[in-house]
């Protein structure tokens, strides 16, 4: 099996091999960037991530077989120039009431409203986080990197990742916690009704 590390190695001799990495991960990088800063920024970030990665391929740490931490680290840096768009997106989410959503059951509507309120609170809290904390939690939740992966992506010790994630999860829980309980209760209620 060809690992990412193998692809990057072979691209030393034949640069075109690097496109395999692009084909494998471009959409993943786009999705992550789009969730943070919208589609238009994401198209740029996707393309630039691989240009930067290609130029820096000699710096890839071959102790890793998986190139995702490296690529998401580059994407994270590139996303910093879109911080205003990100802030604006979070602001919009924080203000959204969820009232535009509709379904066929009142119980479901109530639950959706609660979920929307909790998401709003969450967006508000995300917006207030330091850039480093926000990057950390989003690499975890949206890019699905491991603790080690985040440490490699952001070039900090794993202990720092751990403490950033702990702190950030606590902040997010405090912000959205009371509203999340409502969702949970609604869920229990329905389960009991079915039983």
């Amino acid at each position: 099996m060809t690992t990412d590390s193998d692809i990057i190695r072979s691209s030393g001799e034949s640069p075109q091999a690097f496109t395999q990495l692009y084909d494998k991960y471009a959409r993943m990088v786009f999705r992550y960037a789009a969730r943070r800063a919208g589609e238009s920024a994401a198209e740029d970030v996707m393309a630039e991530t691989f240009l930067v990665a290609f130029e820096r391929r000699e710096s890839f740490d071959h102790a890793w077989e998986d190139a995702r931490p490296w690529l998401f680290g580059i994407a994270t840096n590139l996303l910093r120039k879109h911080h205003r768009t990100e802030a604006k997106m979070l602001k919009v989410t924080a203000k959204a009431s969820g009232r535009e959503s509709y379904t066929d059951s009142t119980e479901r509507i109530a639950e959706q409203l609660d979920a929307a309120a909790a998401t709003s609170a969450l967006a508000g809290a995300l917006r207030k986080l330091s850039a480093a904390d926000r990057e950390c939690i989003l690499l975890y939740a949206w890019a699905e990197l491991s603790y080690e992966g985040i440490a490699a992506a952001t070039k900090v010790p794993i202990g720092t990742v751990r403490s950033r994630l702990n702190r950030t999860r606590r902040i997010l829980k405090e912000a959205a916690g009371p509203l999340m309980n409502n969702i949970e209760e609604a869920g229990h209620g329905r389960a009991q009704a079915i039983a």
Binding site: A26, R27, F30, R31, A34, R35, R36, G38, E39, A42, E43, M46, M89, T93, A115, A118, T119, L122, A123, L126, I137, A141, W142, R169, L172, K173, A176, G177, M180, I183, E184, G187
Partner: peptide
């Protein structure tokens, strides 16, 4: 529902990248 699950669902509805952009 915990804060992580909620976060994972947030901005989950972004459209996919177009083939042209790829």
């Amino acid at each position: 529902m915990d804060e992580l699950k909620l976060l994972r669902e947030m901005h989950d509805d972004v459209p996919g990248v177009t083939d042209a952009a790829v």
